[in-house]
Design a protein around this nucleic acid. Structure first.
Length: 774
DNA sequence: GAAGCCCACATTTTT
DNA sequence: TGTGGGCTTC
């Protein structure tokens, strides 16, 4: 245990050791927040608290995975695995599945992602014959989401005079009705959207005291990461579960709260002390990540915000270079300057490409950088954009999975019924929908008993419908016995999707086929990982439950390759790079024009800028352009007010002719800045080298190499039969490890292996993929 | 039912 | 500019 605490500084140790009441850990950027959380959990375990009594909540799967791994290193794989650790959404969807009947769902409910729910909302707006210029699907979705995050049910919405008045004034009086219909359609579908997972958890805990009591007792210690990003629904869950025993520890940094547009409420962290009386506050103020200059510059910026918890973040690292501020003539030149400087950083400062990031405010800005990087043969990777699970071909296949697991799923039904084309058109689907709404049943019900629900279609269509029903029923039946991988393969062949995908030889078609193959691989991997761990019965429903909460960030991002990272500032949160370029730092872009109306919006933008700068370890360059191509036209732009917020002693501004007050600037100033800009550009220019490594331009889309087909054989391999205690093996995923014991139970032979890097695992030998090394 | 055309539109997006 | 949705046409 000494060991455990010795790795921490004084304030980190204090935070870890305090376990007997509510605590709030304000963790400045780069102050070792994850370290504290993981060590705290390890400390609790060493104090004798069983792992299954600890609830640890994060916002991303990635964060929870990383934390689990680090805890496993401290206390061993077995204990780490027994923790209740995951994202809010995954933990509570698990609980909701167990308690589904109590809230009128069944445990196989499916989850609508944002585009699924936008589709349904769009459909409802059309069915209600409302003007979709006034009722825009995205806007309505946002409004509904905000209501749900605030735990306002459709009924409460309609009964809330203030909201109704607001909707009336903003000429959207039917919002309450749309919300009501949307929610009832989801229910008929036995489906929930992301926000429902939190809202229904609250409803479950509110209406079922015995359930609340049960989980209150179970979760004897609750930890929450990134508390500044919680919304009301999440806050209330933590409050309800935590207030019985009061052992709640939340970690966060109010200065990094950047998700208010998703319902995050910074007040949750600002007022945490009021929610849990006698809260002990700990502040982690030493930044281990960045140079003094970067930390000081960021401090001087964030000081301009009114609403914040006082803290004094400092660095004892080297002083470091000043932040360089570079002005470019246009967005194209900005990209050129940045890519030139990247070459210089690599060849002169010996940075690896993966040490470098380009951060921007909006995704649309990535394009010019892509082009200039490609021209210079600099490998890069773009984060964000369309994620794997959002691609049409993937969504369509997942829709089959969803419909089989949960035939009520309306969105899945719509996607699948005419894919691949089987002659069932919109008119027919509309008729089915009508019947379904009339009888308040799912589309699937109508399909299964068309006569009973009075579905009027001609005999040709009727035949097509019944053969579709037959096909789906076959899958549903098979799903009872086949595992997820087997049924997935069956679906792809029986529907002809696979055949069709491989027929298309256009580049897009081939990329689609590759994505489908990748999905198949993902299902296979999902099954085989669990089989190796000794779980035998892995169903489609399990795959779906997990994959519907995954995002692109969770996919194995083909290693830490030598690539420059391009991403929005939002998605850079939590990451760090040796050198960071913050680009497009202009008025109306950063801060965004949309968020300048209210002070709170502007403060959030400033926090966002703070997040951007504090990603940098060694050095940081801020760039802005004087003109920018946006939405089809070129506009002149001015430097961001945020540049003025940073104390100039931490900046090296090459272009001192810029006047922040005077937007236009004198023509002298303009030409002066042009001249300096030229100097700047030539300073960064590196002569083109013919022997640039990594010639291959990196591909923007996430194309994951197709793995070789792995044949899953059910009999043990030669290797497996020969395996004995003391053998060293090389496992496909876990790497090298030594066999500590072999156990025979039932028909299954298991090996307990201590891996060099992956920790101790037990492998079921008939599935495990490895080679004996000695 | 599918392709093609036109039009409106355009932050950020952990789940 | 470039994308996605909806409408029209064959």
């Amino acid at each position: 245990m000494d060991n455990l605490l010795n790795e921490l500084n004084k304030s980190q140790r204090d935070a870890v050791e305090f376990c007997d009441g509510p605590s709030l850990i304000i963790a400045g950027a780069g102050s070792g927040k994850t370290r504290v959380l993981t060590h705290k959990i390890a400390y609790l375990l060493e104090q004798g608290l069983p792992p299954y009594y600890i609830l640890a909540l994060t916002f991303t799967n990635k964060a929870s995975r990383e934390m689990k791994e680090r805890i496993a290193e401290l206390v061993g794989e077995k204990k780490a695995r027994q923790l209740w650790m995951g994202t809010f959404h995954s933990i509570f969807s698990r609980i909701l599945r167990m308690e589904a009947e109590k809230i009128g769902f069944t445990s196989n409910f499916t989850i609508f992602d944002s585009s699924d729910s936008a589709n349904l909302i769009r459909l409802i707006i059309r069915e209600m014959e409302l003007d979709d210029k006034i009722y825009k699907a995205n806007g309505v979705q946002n409004q509904i989401s905000r209501a749900k995050n605030g735990l306002i049910t459709p009924k409460m919405y309609a009964n809330n005079r203030e909201i109704m008045e607001y909707d009336r004034i903003s000429k959207r009086p039917m919002l309450a009705e749309i919300y009501k219909k949307y929610q009832s359609r989801l229910r008929t579908s036995n489906s929930m959207d992301f926000d429902d997972l939190l809202m229904y958890t609250n409803i479950l805990l509110r209406d079922n005291p015995e359930v609340l009591e049960n989980y209150r007792n179970r979760f004897q210690y609750i930890l929450v990461d990134e508390y500044q990003d919680t919304n009301y629904a999440q806050h209330l869950i933590v409050k309800q579960l935590g207030e019985a025993h009061n052992r709640v520890c939340v970690v966060g940094d109010d200065a990094q709260s950047i998700y208010s547009f998703r319902g995050a409420n910074i007040d949750n962290i600002l007022n945490f002390k009021n929610t849990f009386p006698n809260t002990q506050t700990f502040k982690l103020e030493q930044n281990y990540r960045s140079t003094q200059n970067i930390v000081n510059a960021a401090n001087s910026l964030i000081k301009k915000n009114k609403e914040q918890i006082f803290k004094n973040v400092f660095s004892e690292n080297e002083v470091g270079d000043k932040i360089e501020v570079v002005s470019a003539f246009s967005d194209f030149e900005e990209a050129l300057i940045v890519s030139n400087q990247i070459s210089r950083l690599r060849f002169d400062d010996h940075l690896s490409y993966s040490d470098i990031a380009i951060l921007y405010r909006t995704n649309a800005q990535s394009r010019v950088f892509e082009e200039s990087l490609r021209k210079k043969n600099i490998p890069y990777r773009i984060y964000g954009g369309l994620s794997f699970y959002q691609r049409k071909e993937i969504k369509d296949i997942i829709a089959y999975f969803r419909l089989i697991v949960n035939p009520g799923d309306e969105d899945a039904f719509r996607r699948v019924i005419n894919y691949p084309a089987r002659g069932i058109g919109n008119v027919t689907v509309a008729r089915i929908t009508e019947c379904a709404i009339l009888h308040n049943v799912s589309l699937w019900h109508v399909l299964s008993a068309p006569l009973e629900y009075g579905l009027q279609v001609n005999s040709g269509i009727s035949k097509k419908l019944s053969s579709f029903l037959e096909l789906m029923t076959e899958f549903v039946v098979k799903d009872e016995t086949l595992n997820a991988f087997e049924i997935a393969q069956d679906i792809l062949t029986k529907t002809g999707i696979m055949k069709e995908a491989y027929k298309d030889l256009t580049p897009e078609g081939m990329s689609r086929a590759q994505n489908i193959q990748e999905l198949v691989n993902a299902v296979q991997e999902f099954v085989s990982i669990r089989q190796e761990e000794g779980i035998e019965d892995i169903r489609l429903v399990d795959f779906l439950a997990e994959s519907s909460l995954l995002t692109d960030q969770d996919m194995n991002n083909d290693g830490d390759q030598e690539k420059v990272s391009l991403m929005t500032v939002h998605s850079a949160k939590g990451l760090e790079f040796k050198h960071v370029f913050v680009v497009g730092v202009e008025e109306d872009l950063f801060p965004s024009s949309m968020s300048q109306n209210e002070i709170r919006g502007l403060e959030e933008e400033r926090r966002l800028f703070y997040v951007a700068i504090t990603r940098a370890e060694k050095s940081c360059t801020i760039t802005y352009a004087r003109s920018r191509f946006r939405n089809g036209t070129t506009n002149s732009t001015r430097p961001s007010r945020f540049l003025n917020d940073i104390d100039s002693k931490y900046l090296s501004m090459k272009d001192n002719s810029i006047s922040f007050e005077n937007n236009q600037g004198s023509s002298d100033g303009f030409w002066e800045s042009m001249r300096q800009r030229r100097e700047q550009a030539s300073k960064f220019a590196t002569p083109q080298r013919s022997n640039t490594p990594n010639r291959e331009p990196s591909v923007n889309a996430k194309k994951i190499p197709v793995r070789n087909e792995i044949t899953t054989s059910l009999s043990m391999s030669q290797e497996a039969t020969m395996l004995t205690e003391g053998n060293v093996i090389e496992h496909e995923r876990f790497g090298r490890g030594i066999v500590t014991s072999i156990e025979q139970s039932g028909g299954n032979k298991r090996a307990f292996v201590e891996f060099e890097s992956a920790g101790s695992k037990q492998l079921l030998l008939k599935y495990a993929k490895f080679k004996i090394v000695k």
